[in-house]
């Protein structure tokens, strides 16, 4: 089967790639573009480890075909830190010890970024609701929720 030529914007940069029409966006990112920060936990859209932003919307990249990314803007965990600076969410995850094994962390940070871009001042309940598509088996979510709330506060310019 011949591969398709796809043109996208990936982490802010114009990016072209070839992909098999059967490949998911997740497979394309990991196997064709070698961006392995986006993780596969289930490939059925249940765990959120593969979350990316597709035109700004948090999306399970295992549920989208690579060819569907044509003309779209894709943001992955690799694009969250910018010009050598960690994003406030990344800093908050480190300071709150909000990861243990760390495999769910990229998906959760990307999903939380989408939340904070539209809801700069979320309640605890809103953060829990928003992240309920992202499974974490290590932490019990406590420190993750604290980290997202701390990052939101930092992004609003409040002193810690």
């Amino acid at each position: 089967m011949s591969k398709q030529h796809i043109t996208t914007t990936l982490n802010g940069e114009p990016t072209e790639f070839l992909c098999d029409t059967r490949q998911t966006l997740l497979d394309t990112l990991r196997n064709e573009l070698r961006l392995t920060g986006t993780k596969e936990g289930c490939a059925t859209g249940d765990c959120g480890a593969c979350t990316v932003l597709l035109d700004g919307k948090a999306t399970c990249s295992c549920l989208v075909l690579g060819v569907e990314a044509e003309g779209k803007d894709i943001q992955t965990i690799e694009g969250v830190a910018h010009e050598g600076e960690l994003h406030p969410l990344q800093t908050a995850f480190l300071n709150n010890a909000a990861l243990q094994c760390g495999v769910c962390t990229p998906g959760i940070i990307v999903a939380a970024k989408a939340l904070l871009e539209t809801h700069p001042n979320p309640t605890e309940k809103e953060v829990r609701y928003w992240l309920s598509g992202n499974l974490c088996r290590c932490t019990g979510y406590d420190k993750i929720i604290h980290a997202v709330m701390d990052a939101a506060s930092a992004m609003r310019g409040e002193q810690p």
């Binding site: 392995t36 920060g37 993780k39 992955t76 965990i77 969250v80 960690l86 969410l89 990344q90 962390t105």
Partner: peptide, 12 residues
């Protein structure tokens, strides 16, 4: 190993 794990750089 924190920075590697929040930036997607850590290899699983």
């Amino acid at each position: 190993d924190g920075v590697d794990k929040v930036t997607g750089r850590a290899n699983f």
